[in-house]
């Protein structure tokens, strides 16, 4: 029995001549919160649409809970709750009516509507036309619609889009709760790593349709090689001096230069050398790139 909620095997998808998903092999473990990251246009939404069978994938490339999606479309969709792009909401119906309509389609009791409205903080706006909702409110309603079926797998495409900081924190907490307490598997896409690094257990980084990294959030951290950042009175001369001694200057920024970190003793030695040769050292310290920078580096270099 596979331990994967989602598995794609060498999935490739074209829009006309344009390849939008390129040999994608996603592995989303059951019970994980999988941060599906990539810049705008990377192919995240297309992948989510393929996972929902809205876009037809080649046979034997997409598996939901171990079952091939084309052959088991309805059984797979029964296990999925989704929010894709802008929430799909009937503007002429109220928020509550949108949820009731979905209850009808899913054969779910209407009792759940009240709970969902309360969960996403829309109880007071329940009887307001959804067309008059703000973007954040629409997003909340979209999330409520995705949660209504109590599905095992949630596909959330940029769920915090349009939400204020409080809303973002609430959604983040909600995802943690759904995963920890209710053992849901969540695939959440975003173009901002910092938004989901706090909740994600696994990460996949996509760029131009290709998966550049896939693993746990800790594995992503191991990619993150630390550096020594030095600020002196003469940046260029310092870089030239250290290079002449055989040090590799990896980066020259506006005020600082960076070298790969070797050890604290080595950092101390560099400091001593600089002072002995007449440089004024304003600061010298160990820096670990934040994940956001790492994400940008990975997507830029590829």
């Amino acid at each position: 029995m596979s331990n994967l909620a989602i598995e794609t095997c060498g999935l490739t998808y074209h829009f006309g001549n344009q390849k939008v998903v390129d040999d994608l092999s996603l592995k989303v473990p059951k019970g994980s919160i999988y941060g599906f990251l990539g810049p705008n246009g990377a192919g995240k939404t297309t992948t989510i649409k393929i996972l929902l069978n809205l876009l037809k994938s080649p046979y034997d490339t997409v598996f939901i809970f171990g079952k091939e999606i084309n052959a088991n479309r309805i059984a797979s969709l029964k296990k999925i709750g989704a929010l894709v792009e802008q929430p799909a909401i009937y503007a002429h119906l109220t928020g509550k009516e949108n949820l009731i309509n979905r209850c009808i389609l899913l054969g779910v009791t209407r009792e759940k509507v009240k709970d969902m409205l309360s969960l996403v903080g829309l109880t007071d706006a329940a009887d307001k036309k959804a067309g008059n909702y703000s973007l954040g409110m629409k997003q909340r309603l979209g999330i409520a619609l995705a949660l209504l079926a109590d599905a095992e797998l949630l596909l959330l495409d940029e769920p915090t889009n349009g939400l204020d900081p409080n809303g973002i924190i609430e959604i983040r907490n909600l995802m943690s709760e759904l995963s920890l307490k209710h053992n849901k598997t969540i695939l959440v896409s975003s173009h901002l790593l910092h938004e989901i690094e706090k909740v994600a257990t696994h990460v996949g980084i996509l760029n131009k349709g290709k998966l550049l990294f896939q693993g746990t959030i800790n594995e992503l951290q191991t990619f993150n090689t630390p550096v020594v950042e030095i600020q002196t009175d003469n940046r260029e001369a310092t870089a030239a001096f250290l290079s002449s001694l055989g040090y590799v200057v990896s980066n020259i920024n506006e005020d600082t230069i960076q070298l790969p970190f070797q050890s604290t003793a080595e950092t101390g030695k560099i400091n001593t050398l600089l002072i002995q040769h007449g440089f004024t050292v304003y600061s010298i310290h160990f820096v670990k790139k934040d994940l956001e920078r790492l994400f940008l580096d990975i997507t830029k270099t590829n």
Binding site: K49, L52, N53, L54, I74, A75, L77, K78, I80, A82, V84, E85, Q86, A88, I89, Y90, A91, L105, L106, L145
Partner: peptide, 18 residues
């Protein structure tokens, strides 16, 4: 048009219904 206008074809076809 109710589906075109609200961009709801995607949510309709993502339901577990044939």
């Amino acid at each position: 048009n109710i589906e075109h206008k609200n961009d709801t074809w995607k949510s309709l076809f993502a339901q577990p219904l044939n």
